[in-house]
Design a binder for these strands. Structure first.
Lengths: 205, 205
DNA sequence: GTCTATACTTCGATAGAC
DNA sequence: GTCTATCGAAGTATAGAC
């Protein structure tokens, strides 16, 4: 039983992540994805059956991995405030396994779910659900003040996603000497957002 | 002197905003823009000289209008905390004149400044500069605690942009009965973010 | 499962008359 | 400034041999 060796689909998905993140659905080129994955185009169409099929498969994998992380945090028995800390740090850490998650998420929000089917939409929705649920529970336990859980979700995740996705354009700005662009380390921003959310959710006004 | 009547370029830009916001640079079709603007393609290429030229012109107009708003707020003599309130409300209000600002901004961040020249990049950079400067001043005056101004910029703008750009996909979720998707009014979210930033920037920990 | 070759379509851009 | 017609390039997808 040497190995089933399904290396192709994974390599294709990895290449697709790079391409779709950088250029969006409409700007992505199937040829480029195939070349980067070192398979020929026919192989790509054999595994996924269209550009759209590949896109959906990529989004399902990307968002289900992210949702799994948040669900695990939500299911843990840490106190609510610590769960929020972990969600913020976990999102930033996601970039290690899923380098292109932020850009893909930004694009898909702007895309408005075009190109997606019901199943894929359901996968995407698992992310706000996990985080919103966690906040809701914190409110029910009296650990947080009474805020809309979806609002809290947006205020903690959007800045991190934005920050991570903005890496390339920040580099462009830097090349133009536009910002006093100190390295702006990720960890500092994570801490900033953790402190921000701690304050935002604190019961004692 | 009846009128200079430069109706075409404006109509083209308006149509381009719809198309680029919905599909991104690579997914946008020049024919669709021309049709929507009710001009023929040759006219479009006469005014702007390529798809890229049109895209740049659109971004310059879009971001310079946004930056102007924030610069006006920064230059006013309101106390720093109120300026932050106004920036948040102003961003949400932007959508009235610039319906597609959020989606375009999200896409361009993900795009990493590809397709842009130096001048256009400079225009985009005016937005973080205006807001960052306003926060910096608040810190200098002792009204805010000592935070990185760029971090503060991200934490106040990203959630609003995300929220506004997510309108279409939220609608998709709603169609699947995924969220207990109450209307989620914009004004409530604006107030939420104002309160969040008030807490995030308060000196007295 | 993997490859080469190619069919078919659409796109960005322009020529040239008015 | 405005239009019609069209070119050449590039794109997605597939047929069919191995």
């Amino acid at each position: 039983m040497p190995r089933p060796a399904r290396v192709s689909p994974d390599r294709i998905l990895a290449a697709a992540a790079v391409e779709f993140a950088a250029r969006g659905f409409g700007g992505a080129r199937v040829d480029r994805i195939a070349r980067r994955a070192r398979v020929n185009k026919a192989m790509l169409y054999y595994h996924f059956k269209s550009k759209q099929g590949l896109y959906r498969a990529l989004l399902r994998r990307t968002f289900s991995l992210a949702a799994a992380r948040f669900q695990a945090i939500a299911a843990s028995d840490a106190p609510p405030a610590e769960k929020v800390d972990r969600v913020i740090a976990g999102l930033a850490a996601l970039i290690h396994d899923q380098e292109f998650f932020p850009a893909i998420m930004m694009r898909e929000v702007a895309e408005g779910g075009a190109h997606l089917d019901r199943e894929t939409l359901l996968t995407l929705a698992a992310v706000p659900r996990a985080v919103g649920g966690l906040v809701q529970q914190g409110i029910a336990e009296g650990a947080f003040r009474d805020v809309n859980p979806l609002f809290a979700y947006l205020s903690m995740l959007a800045p991190i996603v934005f920050y991570l996705a903005a890496g390339p354009i920040r580099k462009e700005f830097g090349a133009l000497h536009l910002e006093h662009l100190e390295p702006l380390p990720v960890d500092d921003f994570v801490q900033h957002m953790q402190e921000t959310m701690r304050r935002a959710l604190a019961r004692t006004s």
